[in-house]
Design a protein around this nucleic acid. Structure first.
Lengths: 125, 125
DNA sequence: CTTACCGTTGACGCGAACGTCAACACAACC
DNA sequence: GGTTGTGTTGACGTTCGCGTCAACGGTAAG
């Protein structure tokens, strides 16, 4: 096996363009939980994947609480029947709101595009 | 001509499912500026269109400041050459971020869908 | 007239998502 | 051994987007 690589908080900040404060905040909010070597944080590949999820979630407008819930969905190894149904339900809800968002985005893009052609086609002579 | 219809703040609240507080806040922030009959607000069709824009903007994750900027783009009747170019530039930037958002949304939907098939295909017997 | 009801302007409060210190620890380098 | 760089934990400050009173005004109905 390859020795699992780890990353310092500084490296994470550079790579993902976030502040250390933000990373620590996400940890407080239980979105990521890096290991420690003594007192220092060591981020694994898994932590990086989670962070990517977090940032993507933020870009599409989810709150940290929302994102935490979604990450948790992936985590519960415990897929008892009822729990499983709840998870499915929530996933589907998420998807539904995402699809609505996409419609909104398309509408907005269309309007802005129309507007561009409008003012682009009427230059002052 | 038809007499232009106007709407009270209460009607607006019902129709768009927003609170009066929010509407007044948007007004403070110069996103809408309804007329007044005495002290009371009278919302026109134009105000309604703007509000729809605002709410759509919010759903796609824009800040009120962002939305205000976009609404302002439509407003400046003054399309002098330089101003016009600035407007075009901003519109294109907006569109670019919107398209990126849509990619993020698609990715997220895909992952959630994969996850659903995963846990949906492994029911406890 | 008075009781409702809808509306108005402040002003303060609040949760989210960090920013910004302060004070300290540890390791490397000169 | 001192300094520089990178990290740590509090703790308080800040911006955004309203919520939530309080105190008041107009008007329509009984």
């Amino acid at each position: 096996m390859l020795a699992a690589r780890h990353f310092s908080i500084g490296e994470m900040c550079d790579e993902f363009s976030v502040t250390a404060r933000a990373l620590r905040f996400y940890e407080d909010e239980q979105l990521i939980s890096p290991e420690r070597r003594g007192t220092q944080r060591l981020y694994s590949e898994r932590d990086r994947a989670r962070l990517a999820w977090i940032l993507r979630g933020k870009r599409v407008g989810f709150s940290l609480a929302d994102i935490r819930e979604m990450l948790d969905l992936y985590d519960v190894g415990d897929h008892r029947e009822t729990q499983r149904l709840v998870t499915l339900e929530r996933c589907r809800n998420r998807i539904a709101t995402l699809e609505r968002q996409r419609e909104d985005i398309d509408t907005t893009i269309a309007e802005l595009t129309d507007f561009i052609t409008l003012i682009d086609a009427s230059p002052k002579e």
